[in-house]
Design a protein around this nucleic acid. Structure first.
Lengths: 207, 207
DNA sequence: GCGCTATCTTAGCGTTGTTCAAATAAGAAA
DNA sequence: TTTCTTATTTGAACAACGCTAAGATAGCGC
């Protein structure tokens, strides 16, 4: 029981440690929270020595990158449902926003890692951010399908960014306990999210 | 030169160390960034031993709280100008948003500390957040003066939160290098901020 | 003067990220 | 097969961190 018990390819004598480490990190993140996510703890959880990860990641931050990558993929899955929802295109924009925020509120520590990675590598070339990029493009597509003018390059980009900013801001705030009375008054988190997003132009009318 | 050279009250035999520590922390934050802000580094910067801070703050996080407190005060100063601007009330809402985001983009590391403190104490009683609260109330006031219906308690709160979320989201994103081409196309950061905020209902039309 | 108490220092504990030489095991070459 | 090579893992170590405990120091009221 010293490594991931998945029956996958184990190309070297200790199995696919890289994969095992990322999974251990995700497990720790859900169990103990972001504060407990040290490289040593991840190695411990995976059952290897503290130095082992350095043969698969040059840094702690590179491990976190891999975790974040996983996170963006999970978010993309959550986006699928919203995009394929059988509602009007403008409503789909809202669904996308709600899906985003709900993802963040269901996996707060993972979301934190994802965002910290994005910020710490904010000045790196674009190809580093492939997953963010793909989520970004998805928002953009839904905005177009909701009636945004695709020929107005700048306007479209501004709208997409506004979408993303509002969703990110709300995602980081929903957990604030100060809002709980309001959530109850509205009858749940879902209604709260929709209520806030309704005040954000892009979500309210799809541009 | 072992402590702050301000000629202020020094009630105990080493001067007002608490104050000196907060100032040293702010100095470090601007010089070296958030990553270099260790308790020991702050003590070093203030010219005292690593254990000295523990007689003024029970924790590292309590020092950061004090730094964040300072930050909210500085933000409030930045808000003053926007509130007193001689423009139409709806325009003032936009000014507030721009002031908020500009503050965050001018003091990114301080803003990070401020926000991390808010999140880490998100489940604490309200009086802990007096400064956030006062900034929140300021937004609320400006919204009312811009035409929001003060009797619609819930609607007003939702609008305030939407404001804050959009501003916070944008504040954390403006530094992303991906947006730089767009900023240039629009002729500067200011235009970029206004462009994004224009897509956020609350900012665009003051509710 | 005296003691009291707050303040600061020195020393130390446990943990972290990271490096490096040595050990180990898998795959290729003989 | 045996040997060689190379990728992987370990164990020991370093500096830096947050934090604690015991002692030194200095200001205060008596």
């Amino acid at each position: 029981m010293r490594e991931s018990d998945s029956p996958e390819a184990r190309p070297y004598h200790h199995g696919d440690l890289r994969r095992a480490l990322v999974e251990a990190a995700c497990r720790l993140l859900e169990k103990e929270g972001a504060g407990a996510l040290s490289l040593r703890a991840v190695a411990r959880e995976a059952g290897v020595s503290p130095a082992a990860p350095y043969h698969h990641f040059k840094d702690k931050s590179e491990l976190l990158d891999a975790v974040a990558h996983e996170g963006w993929e999970k978010l993309d899955v959550a986006f699928q449902a919203a995009r394929d929802a059988k509602t009007s295109p403008p409503e789909r924009v809202r669904e996308l926003g709600v899906a985003y925020v709900r993802f963040a509120s269901q996996h707060p520590d993972l979301y934190r890692v994802m965002y910290d990675c994005s910020r710490d590598k904010a000045d790196m070339p674009a190809h580093v951010h492939e997953n963010e990029e793909s989520a970004y493009r998805r928002v953009r597509e839904v905005l177009i399908s909701a009636g945004a003018d695709p020929s107005d390059e700048i306007g479209l980009e501004l709208a997409t960014i506004a979408c993303w900013c509002a969703a990110h801001g709300l995602a980081e705030m929903t957990s604030f306990k100060q809002f709980e009375p309001l959530k109850e008054a509205l009858g749940g988190e879902e209604a709260f999210l929709r209520g806030v997003l309704a005040h954000v132009g892009v979500f309210a009318k799809g541009l």
